[in-house]
Design a protein around this nucleic acid. Sequence first.
DNA 1: GTCTATAACCTGATAGAC
DNA 2: GTCTATCAGGTTATAGAC
Lengths: 204, 204
Amino acid sequence: MAKKIKIEPDTSTEEKIKEAARKVFTQKGYAATRTRDIAEEAGINLALLNYYFRSKEKLFEIIMMEKMHALFGVLVPVLNDSTTSLEKKIELVSVNYIELLSHTPDLPLFVLSEIRSSPQAFGERMQANKLIKDSHFIKQLTEKRKDLHPLQFLMSLLGMLLFPFIARPVFGSVGVLAQKEFDFLMEERKRLIPQWMKLILNSN
Amino acid sequence: MAKKIKIEPDTSTEEKIKEAARKVFTQKGYAATRTRDIAEEAGINLALLNYYFRSKEKLFEIIMMEKMHALFGVLVPVLNDSTTSLEKKIELVSVNYIELLSHTPDLPLFVLSEIRSSPQAFGERMQANKLIKDSHFIKQLTEKRKDLHPLQFLMSLLGMLLFPFIARPVFGSVGVLAQKEFDFLMEERKRLIPQWMKLILNSN
DNA sequence: GTCTATAACCTGATAGAC
DNA sequence: GTCTATCAGGTTATAGAC
């Protein structure tokens, strides 16, 4: 229990490679990434990558797992909390996601692209799926709006939250929407989206 | 003027290759696609691909151009029509997009992924950008809601429309959301999204 | 653990026969 | 126009020295 006293400094070679892999994989995707890119980014030799992680694919799976947990990790616990109201959940999910994606904007496009490339893999996805479908949030939605499929609401909420980051290369090109303005708009959306989704929820 | 009387039958080898390229590129992305995959899908030899299109990259650029036009082509003309009301534009964009994406569901994820991979390329994107920013739709929005950045509204609308298709591998896995149910929900969204966006537009 | 050198393989593209 | 055979270059992974 008290075996490992020293805190991992994250400066080990293994961690340097993982950090480089996070950067390159998320930027270029699995197929376009060369192990040489990762090695160079990490400042180490190519052979070391295989020494620590056996293969490009094994390394990728580790990074992918991390990223999927990051993407679904801010969603699932909030939706499954049986002590919070529907409206509170909407607020929390909105703030959590915009906060997260402001720091790692290419997270959703990376995860969704790679899931598409190998749809049968990544069992995590199915698991997250079930956790969402059977969530307290869905129960609350169903109860509140019997006329509406709960996924109609959830897809809209997530679309509003994630889409600006997914499409940022389109919206955010130079001269049309600069970085600072984009950040400002996202900050504003923490307030706007819950407001709008509540409006939708209470309509009819 | 009356030079080409015969209508192209689209059964030519060139078209067979393009059709195969459309399928494989959009499914796997540029980097993960091998020219051999395209040749096999087209039922022709690998060498013919280079005979007709010089290189993998040239072929890709043709397909990418097509796909970008498809994705933005249903948006730009509607937003720039100065004879329609704001609410009519919302209805048209919604129906157009859901109709389009129901037939080619992986169009948006493909285009957005590839734009990210080479952000400086694809000048079309910038052009579409300007066309949107200076559109009649944006003017109408600005006038109607002086307190709201028009992109806040546009990003939300597009997010609602595109996100279900972008995230379909997540939502649409077997046992959670089957194909027929997904199609039904999308059909329903043609009505729901305009209704909801008008609600947002007229709030406050 | 870390490196250099190289093996083994794959991929895009072309030469040349038909 | 279409094919087979092959080249040239690049990529992953490993062997072996330090």
